Computed example of a mutant assay.
Amino acid sequence: MINKHVERANRVITVLFYLGSTLLFILLILSGSINHFPINKFYWLSANTSNIPGAPYDISRWTFWGLCAEKNDKNVCSNYLSPAYPISPKDNFDTTTNLPPSFVSNRSTYFYLTRFDFVFFWLGLIFTGVNTILYIFTFCSYSFTKVVWFLQILASVFTISAVCMQTAAVAMAKNAFKNYGDDVSIGPALMGISWAILFLTICLFFMTGGTFIKKGYKHHQNYVEMSKYKEDALKYQQYMNSTKPINTDNASNPTDPYSLPSTYDEGYQQQNAEKQQQQQPVDIIQKSAGVIQQNPKSSVKFFHFKKTKKIPHNDDGSV
């Protein structure tokens, strides 16, 4: 009973984690695409770029979809948006003037880290979203459990990689701007969402993995039991084919080679015992009749008639 309650609680928690993770993925991916609350509060990095020639804004904010301006502590996104927009000022502003040296010397690191994490976030969302739907079907089929476990592995790999790469790139960019003397800050909301996604993904990895292993073990147990039953049934059939017909009259004799084997089930033995009880009176009568016919003098006599000799008499009464 306790195991059932635990299993139900695990299912409910897993469904909630999947829904929460999918929702957080959507919020993250909408960053930079909508200028409305609360999406306009989400950004990876905010830095003062007023002294960089080619920078379109005095304060630039890097979001999931690109570069946005800052107004009243809110994102204002318009023209500088594109898929896989990197956090790389050298590529964003097409200049090296007044750029922190790290963005020039390590340009490839910033560029590829932040471009690949765009793809990995999308893949993480796809696999997580599909699992959110498929997990419901795991309640009735072990095959869906296998699929969910496989997709969760892929979702975990891409999500963990995306969050780690984005965190590394943002931390390096912040240090580069800070060391150069520019005002810079990390977007707490978007970074918090990304790490919340990472936490939920790791939890789902172990939860779905535990369910997969548990159901797999039960499935293996059932398979072993069924194999044993089939083997016992085959042995019983071979035994029945190799033995002669059973003589029920001698079933009670333990030395009789044709007596009922102990492998018979209890129901069959009870049925055979009732048959023997019904047959016993008939056998006794038949055996008693046979004995009387063979030796009629040995039968019990309840009445004894004595034979006497008839003596003739004369008419006068003399003998």
Rank of each mutant, 00 (worst) to 15 (best):
residue 83 P to I: 01
residue 10 N to C: 06
residue 55 A to T: 04
residue 75 N to W: 09
residue 70 E to M: 11
residue 8 R to A: 11
residue 61 R to H: 03
residue 16 L to A: 12
residue 24 L to C: 14
residue 57 Y to N: 05
residue 74 K to R: 14
residue 42 F to R: 05
residue 78 S to A: 14
residue 39 I to F: 09
residue 9 A to N: 10
residue 87 I to D: 00
residue 50 S to F: 03
residue 67 L to D: 06
residue 96 T to V: 15
residue 104 V to L: 09
residue 22 T to V: 12
residue 89 P to L: 01
residue 30 L to Q: 15
residue 95 T to Y: 09
residue 74 K to N: 10
residue 18 Y to Q: 06
residue 46 S to R: 12
residue 43 Y to E: 01
residue 83 P to M: 03
residue 62 W to V: 13
residue 25 F to Y: 15
residue 17 F to L: 15
residue 79 N to D: 15
residue 71 K to R: 14
residue 26 I to A: 13
residue 22 T to W: 08
residue 101 P to H: 03
residue 50 S to L: 00
residue 19 L to M: 10
residue 60 S to H: 01
residue 96 T to C: 10
residue 37 F to T: 15
residue 94 D to F: 13
residue 32 G to Q: 04
residue 54 G to W: 07
residue 23 L to I: 14
residue 102 S to I: 09
residue 79 N to E: 14
residue 18 Y to A: 11
residue 105 S to M: 06
residue 45 L to W: 03
residue 22 T to A: 15
residue 103 F to Y: 01
residue 14 T to L: 04
residue 79 N to P: 06
residue 39 I to A: 10
residue 22 T to D: 07
residue 73 D to K: 15
residue 96 T to Q: 14
residue 34 I to P: 08
residue 50 S to I: 00
residue 8 R to C: 09
residue 55 A to N: 02
residue 92 N to C: 04
residue 99 L to H: 06
residue 46 S to G: 10
residue 76 V to A: 07
residue 61 R to A: 04
residue 86 P to C: 01
residue 62 W to T: 10
residue 13 I to F: 13
residue 55 A to V: 07
residue 47 A to T: 02
residue 71 K to P: 10
residue 11 R to F: 11
residue 49 T to Q: 06
residue 67 L to E: 07
residue 81 L to N: 01
residue 99 L to E: 09
residue 57 Y to D: 00
residue 54 G to N: 04
residue 69 A to V: 09
residue 35 N to V: 12
residue 102 S to G: 00
residue 93 F to E: 01
residue 58 D to C: 00
residue 59 I to V: 13
residue 55 A to H: 00
residue 99 L to I: 11
residue 15 V to T: 14
residue 67 L to K: 04
residue 78 S to T: 15
residue 43 Y to Q: 05
residue 87 I to Q: 02
residue 100 P to L: 03
residue 9 A to Y: 11
residue 70 E to A: 08
residue 31 S to T: 05
residue 69 A to N: 14
residue 96 T to W: 06
residue 72 N to W: 08
residue 33 S to R: 12
residue 18 Y to L: 14
residue 49 T to F: 02
residue 75 N to D: 15
residue 46 S to D: 12
residue 84 A to E: 13
residue 79 N to C: 07
residue 29 I to N: 05
residue 73 D to W: 12
residue 65 W to C: 00
residue 34 I to E: 08
residue 65 W to K: 01
residue 38 P to K: 04
residue 68 C to A: 10
residue 41 K to I: 11
residue 54 G to D: 09
residue 18 Y to K: 03
residue 30 L to S: 11
residue 51 N to T: 13
residue 93 F to I: 04
residue 81 L to W: 05
residue 22 T to G: 09
residue 57 Y to S: 03
residue 56 P to W: 06
residue 27 L to M: 14
residue 48 N to M: 04
residue 95 T to Q: 00
residue 69 A to D: 15
residue 93 F to K: 02
residue 11 R to I: 12
residue 24 L to H: 08
residue 15 V to C: 05
residue 52 I to R: 00
residue 50 S to Q: 08
residue 77 C to L: 03
residue 9 A to L: 13
residue 25 F to D: 13
residue 58 D to F: 02
residue 81 L to T: 08
residue 88 S to Y: 09
residue 18 Y to H: 10
residue 39 I to M: 08
residue 10 N to H: 08
residue 84 A to D: 13
residue 105 S to Q: 09
residue 20 G to R: 06
residue 85 Y to I: 13
residue 75 N to P: 13
